[in-house]
Amino acid sequence: MSKTADLNGDGRRDTATVSLVTIRDTHQTFRLTVTTARRQAATTTFTVPCMCDSSGDRRTPRDVHLGFARVDGVPGDEIFVDLSSEPFDAWEYATYTLRNGKLQRLPAPGSGRSGLWGKAYPLMGIDGYTFSKAGRSPQVVRHELRPVRGFSHFSGTSTTYTWSRGDWVKGGVKRVEPITAKAAENTYFGFKGIAFR
């Protein structure tokens, strides 16, 4: 599975390829390779949990390669991959970026040690991210809502992070008062303000 985008910020299209390496009982291993327009290559591997004794649960490179989006303040697109084990469970996405000729994980703002972008499916909670700019600096608001009054309403927090000096800097935290499940899903769930290419 190969797609092209400007990944190193030089204005030329580079190629990102995801390939399946191994299948084990509990996980699959994929290889991500980037070949720049100048024919310089960088590679890394990542694993996706699965019940791999069942062929229906196995993922393909097309399943895990979400696409490209420009997220941080460094020129070049980032590569999003889906590490989720189930399509309707908690979703976990990783972001890879090309830095100094090497592929490395770009931690999601507020993600802690995992570095992953997390999204809870609406039956468990409503999580998401809203992308924008604060002046010329990228900004991400992380939404984390949990059910109240059964599952008819959700409340939680929205935390703002701004890209500054090579990292996400935490800003204000806003309380999200209880709103209906439908309104919460429409407003906060998933990725808002960016489109994967």
Rank of each mutant, 00 (worst) to 15 (best):
M51K: 10
L98I: 05
F46G: 04
W91E: 14
D10H: 05
A41H: 12
F68M: 06
R197C: 13
W117R: 06
R105G: 06
G150P: 06
T180G: 15
G193I: 13
G156N: 00
T157C: 07
V173T: 15
A181F: 03
T44Y: 08
D63N: 05
T162G: 05
T4W: 10
R39W: 05
L32K: 11
C52E: 01
V169I: 09
H143V: 09
F68N: 03
G118K: 15
T4C: 03
S152V: 08
L123Y: 10
Y121V: 03
R105C: 01
H143I: 09
T35W: 11
M124A: 06
H143W: 10
T60W: 09
I194F: 14
L20A: 07
I23T: 15
P122T: 01
R175V: 12
S158W: 06
A120G: 12
G101S: 03
E78C: 00
F88H: 06
R99E: 11
K102Y: 13
V21H: 13
V64D: 04
P122F: 03
T159R: 00
E86F: 08
E78D: 12
S111T: 02
R31D: 03
T162M: 00
M1K: 08
D127M: 13
N100C: 07
V74P: 11
G115D: 01
H27N: 12
E144A: 13
E144P: 07
G166Y: 11
A181T: 00
M51P: 04
S2F: 07
R105F: 06
T159N: 06
A195R: 15
G115H: 05
P122A: 01
W168T: 02
I126S: 01
G125N: 04
P75A: 10
K170I: 04
K3Q: 13
N186R: 14
N8W: 01
T17Q: 14
L32N: 08
F46W: 13
A37I: 02
R58L: 09
H27F: 12
T36D: 02
A94W: 01
R62W: 13
T36R: 03
Q139M: 11
G190D: 15
Y188N: 00
S85V: 03
A94C: 09
R105H: 08
F68S: 02
T43W: 13
N8E: 00
R146F: 15
P178I: 10
D72L: 12
G156M: 02
P107L: 02
G135Y: 04
G110C: 01
V48D: 05
H153T: 01
V71S: 01
P75Y: 04
P122C: 04
P87D: 07
E144N: 11
P138T: 07
L103P: 03
T162N: 03
T97L: 07
L98H: 04
E78W: 04
T95R: 12
G76H: 02
D57S: 07
F154H: 02
R99K: 09
A69V: 09
R105N: 08
A134K: 13
R105I: 10
R39Q: 15
T159C: 05
T160Y: 13
A181R: 01
L66G: 07
K170H: 05
A195W: 14
S132F: 13
V74S: 13
Y93C: 09
